[in-house]
Design a protein around this nucleic acid. Structure first.
Lengths: 223, 223
DNA sequence: ACCTGAACACCGTTCAAGT
DNA sequence: ACCTGAACACCGTTCAAGT
């Protein structure tokens, strides 16, 4: 005889929270912070919200759109640069916050690269960057195109560095590439040979700073 | 009574080609060219090669490593810049070939961004770029770090543009962002308002050229 | 030693059929 | 009108058990 199954009383299970876009995004944010974006799947979200994956499509268009919402959520925490700060210092301050944000969520960075974010916090962020460039005397077109470029640099850097830091496979690749470069025959790759050491020199921070300065100089000087 | 099953003669089925790394990569290349990298899955590859997916792991480490091999295969077709060409023209010529290659395979570009390619053709490509920069009088460190940056720009651009051109979803996003920017309240986003038109101006080609020039100027001028 | 069937542990998205 | 069970059409990778 199987024991009589005692039904779980309504009280023991927390009341099923009402579904809403806000609820979906809140759960997604929590999972992303605790376990990474990889774990933020429609199925996982649905099961945490006590429903089936199909139900989520009432509140989000698809995975890409959800990722856009997560980005905007993260950007709500950006500190505006101090009033009166020099324009270049302001750009550095803003962009490095953005980069740090994405470094913490490299797979979100991957998504962002193929997204056209359009949330209010993203627009505010772009507006601040534009304002600083314009205040620095950068021409309207250079400022507009340059902001795109600076954001692309920051995002791509987060994708590159972030993913590599986290995955064991990627470490194997770094190792392989380093070996390949170090062993590259002098005769076949003479230029690699000439700058061999510089190819691996510098910290991530130094290289990012170099990249940022080069790009900003180029943008500011654009005819 | 079920009809006697006549065994297919060996002649009627093409002899099962011997598995090898070269065979795997050849099939992968064909599928990528004809149907896009998305279709190059271990399962699809295995079925085309008349085996199970597990067997492929004898010849490739994993999907990322396979993508690296595909990149190197594509790079074998790069034309070296004409001898005696000015260094900057050479860099343009090489990088635009690379960019064009990745534009045709945007999802490969996505993979490349998280890869450390180390194939012979990639090394040769990097070596040529380095040689041109050094010939142009760029300092060793700026050349080494700059090559990384130029490749990142080209790859990230291919990811952004490529993916967007191809997907219907992405078009929706572009539209959404354009709407958001056009409707951005003047009071809330004053700088966006000031350069509104420039945010959408220019062809992809013009913007890429701007990006490339800005970056190369910045690298060449780096202290 | 080399190879692989079958399994493990998942995915995103759609749509007919509920309530 | 709003919601969702179930299905569709897949994934990459591992490993025990072959030959």
């Amino acid at each position: 005889m199987s024991p009589r199954r005692v039904p779980v009383s309504r009280r023991e299970r927390p009341a099923k929270a009402a579904l809403s876009r806000a609820a979906v995004i809140a759960v997604a944010l929590r999972i992303m912070r605790d376990e990474g974006l990889e774990k933020v799947t429609m199925r996982r979200l649905a099961s945490e919200l006590d429903t089936g994956p199909a139900s989520l499509y009432v509140y989000v268009t698809n995975t890409a759109e959800l990722h856009g919402a997560l980005l905007d959520e993260l950007l709500s925490g950006l500190e505006p640069p101090a009033a009166g700060i020099a324009w270049r210092g302001g750009v550095v301050a803003l962009l490095s916050q953005y980069t740090r944000l994405l470094f913490a969520h490299p797979s979100l960075a991957r998504s962002v690269l193929t997204l056209r974010p359009s949330g209010p916090n993203y627009l505010r962020f772009v507006d601040s960057l534009l304002g600083l460039l314009l205040a620095g005397g950068v021409a309207a077109r250079s400022a507009a195109w340059g902001v795109d470029l600076l954001l692309q640099l920051a995002t791509a850097t987060a994708v590159e560095q972030g993913t590599r830091d986290r995955s064991a496979d990627a470490e194997g690749e770094v190792y392989l590439q380093a070996m390949a470069v170090r062993e590259a025959a002098v005769a076949e790759y003479p230029s690699i040979d000439r700058v061999r050491d510089e190819l691996f020199s510098g910290t991530g921070e130094e290289r990012y700073r170099f990249a940022f300065d080069a790009l900003l100089d180029g943008i500011a000087a654009a005819r």
